[in-house]
């Protein structure tokens, strides 16, 4: 096991940040922690990267205990905090050199690992890090976290505040890193990114709701899901919420994801109901629930 977390709890004064968290991450796995802001993701990262000590429970990273062997962990993990935390007044190259040096290595030594990412920012290597675009900063931070060839990589919300194209690129890079036998623990509030992970843990209010592969997790969804569409989105949601048999109503892009209480639900009765509410162009079709739907259901 690359990461093993056993019954970890952590509380700040009155807030229970983490409650009895347990999970395991296999070697070379891309594991996602999915949850809203304030779910406790960052606290968990800080415990696993030895910055914080848990109140209860034990955890090992790359075979080392996070409390007893913290020195070994610091040599074998890469950590990319959620907030960009490189030196803005140093250039790209200087930042990379700095982190290489304090890890007791050089850029040349592990260049093959970062090469694919570094070539993209190499044209700007003499530019100060503070002057880079958001996506570039992200790539530089990833390079700095990889420069010592870590066994485990911790990425705390790496794509928050990054444009969709850069986000996509970033996940492609993670997939490639995974093939180089690096275990990756990544947290994100974006449900669409969850599907790119090997396994995910849904986390809310410091508790894990579910751990499984993305495909399995959506199968756990207990109801049949319908895509409902109409000419007036706002009115549609209002009407559906007022419908006596509704189980859940969530807007999802151009559709509304709808589930019904009844087991013998037929779409025509809903269509008729919506027509009485004055909606036109109504389409209702079954659809696959997404991780977002599952999360909403579990978080209820």
């Amino acid at each position: 096991m690359s990461i093993s977390v056993q019954h970890i709890s952590k509380s700040y004064k009155n807030v229970k940040a983490l409650q009895n968290i347990s999970f395991e991450v296999k070697e070379g796995e891309l594991f996602g922690l999915i949850g809203p802001d304030g779910a406790g993701k960052t606290t968990l990262f800080r415990i696993l990267t030895t910055l914080l000590i848990a109140n209860e429970g034990t955890a090992t990273v790359a075979g080392f205990n996070v409390v007893l062997d913290y020195k070994n962990i610091r040599n074998s993990v890469g950590y990319m905090p959620g907030k960009f935390s490189l030196y803005q007044d140093l250039t790209v190259e200087e930042n990379l050199n700095f982190f290489a040096t304090i890890f007791g290595t050089t850029i040349a030594e592990n260049y093959d690992l970062i090469k694919e990412i570094y070539v993209q920012i190499e044209p700007f290597k003499d530019r100060r890090a503070g002057k880079l675009s958001g996506g570039m900063k992200q790539k530089l931070a990833l390079c700095c976290a990889l420069i010592h060839k870590p066994k485990v990589l911790f990425l705390d919300e790496p794509t928050t505040g990054v444009d969709p194209v850069s986000r996509k690129e970033f996940w492609e890079m993670l997939k490639r890193l995974q093939q180089k036998d690096i275990t990756i623990l990544v947290s994100t509030p974006y449900m669409d990114e969850a599907e790119l992970c090997d396994r995910i843990a849904l986390i809310q209010n410091g508790e894990i709701l579910e751990i499984d592969t993305p495909a399995e997790i959506v199968k756990h969804y207990p109801k049949k899901m319908y895509n409902v569409r109409g000419d007036n989105m706002y009115k549609l949601i209002e009407s559906l919420k007022a419908y006596e048999h509704q189980y859940s109503v969530y807007p999802f892009g151009e559709f509304v994801h709808y589930t019904d209480h009844r087991t013998d639900f037929d779409t025509e009765s809903l269509k008729d109901y919506l027509k009485t509410k004055g909606l036109t162009d109504i389409t209702i079709a079954t659809t696959q629930p997404t991780i977002e739907d599952t999360f909403m259901e579990l978080a209820k």
Partner: peptide, 11 residues
């Protein structure tokens, strides 16, 4: 600026 956190996880 948050760099200390990054430094602290280094050896």
């Amino acid at each position: 600026i948050g760099t200390l956190e990054q430094i602290n996880v280094t050896p």
